[in-house]
Amino acid sequence: MAIEVFDTPGLLAQAVARRLAARVTEAVSAGRTPTVVLTGGTIAGKIYGELAHDADWRAAEYWWGDERFVPEGHEDRNDRQAREGFLDRFEVPAEHVHAMPAHGCDQSMAEAADAYAETLPDDPFDVVLLGVGPDAHIASLFPGHPQVTETERRAVEVFDSPKPPPQRISLTYPALNHTRATWFVVSGEDKAEAVAKAIGGAPVEQAPAAGARGLEETVWFLDRGAASRLSS
């Protein structure tokens, strides 16, 4: 595990954008289709805004760690943020964008979660991006909720998210940890306690972020605020 601390959220976003471009380029050069799991939130939006024409973003395929089960195009959708932030800007082909089902589809949430799991690649993802909440949740895996202990299903329905909206679909550890690299991207002093708990090895039932890790690489990208409770 590595920890990288940046003075500002802007510098954090620039660094992650550069690193993601390099990782996508590396996969393309190796003759592979880059596979990336995206996240939502303010710092994710900053990262997407920093992405430039320094990688073949059209060559990659994209999934999401979780999604709010609201209608397609709703402002709360993580996929809308990513489409507006960079997918549409780089004209990523529709078949490379694996959005989670939306409210209004002809499936129950459980059926939608299972259907989404079927879209996941057999090989490990290249990169999973994860934000962390003030309660140390990742994706829609929340402290004390049963989804944290799921070991078989790769995507699950969430009916009672403590953070609105309450209905969501989330990848689980069997999917999130099937990745070459896990990158936590965390900004703000309000996340500092959660970061310290997760890095300090708190039980996953208390700090779900503690249960996520890459097969080859796990990096915490933090700004000064998010890192403020780490011991030096």
Rank of each mutant, 00 (worst) to 15 (best):
H103Q: 12
A192T: 05
R32G: 11
Y62E: 01
A59L: 13
A175G: 01
V92T: 11
L129Y: 00
G49R: 04
A175C: 05
D88M: 07
A181P: 05
D54M: 10
A227T: 07
I199Y: 07
G211R: 09
R77L: 15
R168P: 03
E150C: 04
E84T: 15
W64A: 04
E193Y: 15
R23G: 14
V186F: 07
T119R: 08
G49C: 10
P124Y: 03
E118K: 03
Y62N: 10
G225Q: 06
P208L: 08
V132H: 05
A181I: 05
A202W: 06
P124V: 06
D56H: 13
D190F: 02
A209E: 11
F221E: 11
G225H: 13
R83C: 15
G188F: 02
E95A: 15
V156C: 06
A94F: 08
D190K: 09
V5G: 09
P101Y: 11
P146T: 07
D88C: 12
V36G: 03
V5S: 01
H137A: 06
P208A: 09
Q167P: 09
E50M: 05
A209T: 14
V24W: 08
D190G: 08
E189N: 12
N78M: 14
Q147N: 10
D56L: 10
A99L: 02
G225M: 08
E72A: 14
K191A: 05
V132Q: 10
Y62L: 06
E216S: 04
Y48F: 02
W63L: 04
A94L: 15
T151G: 09
Y116G: 06
G201H: 12
F142M: 03
I47E: 05
P101E: 03
V128C: 09
M1I: 14
M100F: 03
E150H: 12
A155W: 00
D56T: 14
A117W: 04
I47F: 14
D123K: 00
D122Y: 03
